[in-house]
Simulated assay, not measured.
Amino acid sequence: MIQKYFPLDKNYILERAQLDTAQELTIYLVDFAKKFYLEQYNPLGIEDDTIRAIKSHQTAYTDRLEEFYRNLAGVYRYKFGQNQLELLFDGQDHYQKYTSDWSSTYKEWLVDFCLKPNFLKAVLELTVFYPEGRKSELAENRMKAFIHQHFELKIYKYKGIVKMRIA
């Protein structure tokens, strides 16, 4: 990673905290989505093939959700990032504070996201049902589109994050 600014820039510390918690929070996303689906769409606990697949799924791989996680982390830095470090009086260092802030915001966002059926369906398709080929690309594109619609931000590979202009 090439750093353009001084090493104690808030965004570098925040990005490091986000990258270090990526695996843990992505697994949390999958487990939360499965639990949310079972509670919302199967409150009686009726077992069919889909429900059995969700219940028996063990989250071991998260590679299909890496891009979504990176995009969401970028949106968080865009919305809450400045380069000025805060003065902390509670004994924590900045890394711990940003890790805690990011984790709590991420988990709050997931509750909101899972209320949207398209998001929930895309997460389950990418993890539990793990489609091969074209279907997985469609689910990944749905995840990107979800971020664009929810936050009204467009993410470009070379330009970065740009606020969408709505006519």
Rank of each mutant, 00 (worst) to 15 (best):
I2L: 13
I2T: 12
Q3Y: 12
K4Y: 13
D9E: 15
Y12G: 05
Y12W: 09
I13G: 07
L14T: 13
E15K: 07
R16D: 15
A17C: 10
Q18F: 06
A22G: 08
A22V: 09
E24F: 10
L25S: 01
L25K: 01
L25V: 06
L29Q: 05
L29I: 12
V30D: 03
V30P: 02
D31E: 15
F32V: 07
F32L: 06
A33N: 04
K34F: 13
K35Y: 11
K35M: 12
E39Y: 07
E39G: 01
Y41W: 08
N42E: 04
N42I: 12
G45P: 05
D48K: 06
D49I: 05
T50G: 12
T50E: 15
I51R: 00
A53K: 09
I54L: 10
I54E: 03
K55M: 08
K55P: 06
T59R: 02
T59K: 01
T59L: 05
E66I: 12
E67C: 03
F68D: 02
F68A: 02
L72G: 00
L72W: 11
G74R: 05
G74L: 12
R77T: 03
F80I: 02
N83I: 11
L85T: 14
L88H: 04
F89C: 04
D90Q: 02
D90W: 07
G91I: 13
H94K: 09
Y95S: 10
K97P: 00
K97F: 08
Y98H: 06
D101F: 08
W102Q: 02
W102F: 15
S103M: 11
Y106Q: 01
K107W: 08
E108R: 05
W109L: 13
V111R: 00
V111Q: 08
V111Y: 14
V111D: 08
D112T: 09
F113Y: 11
L115W: 10
L115F: 14
N118W: 06
N118H: 04
F119N: 01
L120N: 00
A122K: 00
T127S: 15
F129N: 04
F129I: 08
E132N: 11
E132G: 12
R134K: 13
R134H: 14
K135S: 08
K135H: 10
E140R: 09
E140F: 01
F146R: 04
H148R: 13
H148G: 01
H150R: 06
F151Y: 15
E152H: 05
L153H: 03
Y156K: 00
K157M: 07
